[in-house]
Nucleic acid binder design. Structure first.
Lengths: 207, 207
DNA sequence: TGAGATTTACTGACCGGATGGTCGGTAGAA
DNA sequence: TTCTACCGACCATCCGGTCAGTAAATCTCA
């Protein structure tokens, strides 16, 4: 018999999580296509054949990583932010929580944006559908600001993608060993984004 | 004898430009590693062997595309913007010109950000060095705003990367067939960025 | 002008190596 | 004895790249 009793839902046993994390790390460094299964196997102290005891295929591994990352995004960014009633504070919560996820060590979350092309169409659609929910949630938060007449005169779709650009670019340049801590950087980004989008606080509060 | 008398400077004959453009398009769609040389050859109506009459290697093709893209960035964004004396107007010029390059048809410019890992270290360093010049140019423009006390209380490095994120994310979502024209989108992005970074115009002027 | 030489632009067939994936087997725990 | 976790060896396929050869265009010079 082959692996994965619960094929997709992620977060099974210790070993599986370890494989996801290490694989995500390597995919992040080298890219999905440039990474061989032997690479990953070696990183988790297995042979390639041993690795296939835990996963079904390379594409399946990528899909599992992305599902794992989506779960983290949902539980650590979306769900807590939904609880925030005030739209401005909700926006700040989204930026800060998503920023934290992107700057912490686990690279699964960056795979989510960089390697969708590696998925088969069916799996890709599943992930994109889940991402779309997040997109609408953020855009809806901006629309709510518009209702309160706090939003500048901008198209909310453009504003949302603009914000995502700034956020998702973070892992490409942020270094934990650098001069600024992740909290400092995230705070600054939140301030820039909020003052770029909202007309209320002409000088945003400091982090 | 093999190809390329002027090996790297790009923009040789018609056919070479055609190859660069088509290859950039396919690299953009499928990724560098996922694209085979036969793919590219077929797209320009050649056999793989015929393609190698024009290029030296796959990596060399990527490098040529990136040099070509850097040249366009330098002549169409950096050089004209250097002429703009006022820092705020210079920043707007950078955003608008770079935005235009990113939303027009030629995909070479997006390869520049997405496929650096495909280059050999030596070539990668050359491209990164050239990119760094651009980075310092933009950050310098923000520093100039600070000197004029028009910049909000933000770290200019964070602000620069934040701006790059918004810009470089553009080609991932913008569709020329969509509701908004590229000029409208670029104008909105410029307004958001300028009001996010500068404290002068609390409501930025419309495009 | 035109016959022969050379160059340009290209092809089909081929090669070594790497890759994703499989399979029969096995040590040790339960 | 059965099941879990794993390995060494193997396979078909594909990929980047090469090479010998060639049709047509271009040049050379009597």
């Amino acid at each position: 018999m082959k692996a994965s009793k619960k094929p997709v839902i992620a977060a099974e046993c210790d070993r599986t999580i370890d494989i996801y994390t290490k694989a995500a790390q390597i995919f992040h460094e080298q890219g999905f296509d440039a990474t061989s299964m032997s690479n990953i196997a070696a990183a988790v102290d297995l042979t390639k054949a041993g690795l296939y005891y835990y996963i079904e295929s390379k594409e399946d591994l990528l899909f599992a990583i992305m599902n794992y990352a989506m779960e983290r995004l949902e539980t650590m960014v979306i769900e807590p932010s939904r609880e925030v009633a005030d739209p401005e504070q909700r926006l700040r919560s989204i930026i800060e929580r998503h920023g934290r996820l992107l700057t912490e060590g686990n690279k699964a979350i960056t795979i989510l944006t960089d390697e969708i092309e590696g998925l088969k169409p069916k799996h890709r659609k599943q992930i994109l559908d889940r991402k779309r929910v997040y997109f609408y949630f953020v855009r809806g938060t901006l629309d709510a600001q518009r209702a309160e007449k706090k939003l500048r005169n901008v198209n909310t779709t453009v504003a949302t993608f603009g914000l995502f650009g700034t956020l998702l670019w973070l892992p490409r340049w942020f270094r934990a060993e650098g001069r600024l801590t992740s909290e400092e950087v995230i705070g600054q980004i939140a301030n820039i984004a909020l003052s770029g989008l909202l007309s209320t606080s002409c000088e945003a509060q400091s982090a």
